[in-house]
């Protein structure tokens, strides 16, 4: 089973990288970009028997830092 873990900064947490990319997009002439936030995508290939609880634990313990980040678990149809 393929699982995608989407890790994103929590709302309100300043994202200096996103801000720099926002400025770069402005510089390229793309108007109307109101905000840029940069996150991380982790793709896992796991046994089909892997439980939702185990996936959540992987996120809580390692894949995301829940002080500053949210995560979303997406199971991808084979």
């Amino acid at each position: 089973m393929k699982v995608r873990i989407h890790v994103s900064l929590k709302p309100g947490v300043l994202d200096p990288q996103g801000r720099a990319v926002h400025h770069a997009l402005d510089g390229l002439g793309f108007s109307g970009v109101e905000d840029v936030r940069i996150g991380r995508l982790v793709e896992l290939e796991v046994a089909d028997t892997t439980t939702d609880e185990a996936l959540a634990e992987m996120c809580e313990k390692l894949l995301a830092n829940t002080v500053i980040e949210n995560y979303r678990i997406e199971k991808v149809a084979a």
Partner: peptide
Amino acid sequence: LTEAGLLPGALMRNAGQ
């Protein structure tokens, strides 16, 4: 230490990049 949960908070990328 923050990642191990011994201290609160997190250390993020410097604001000035």
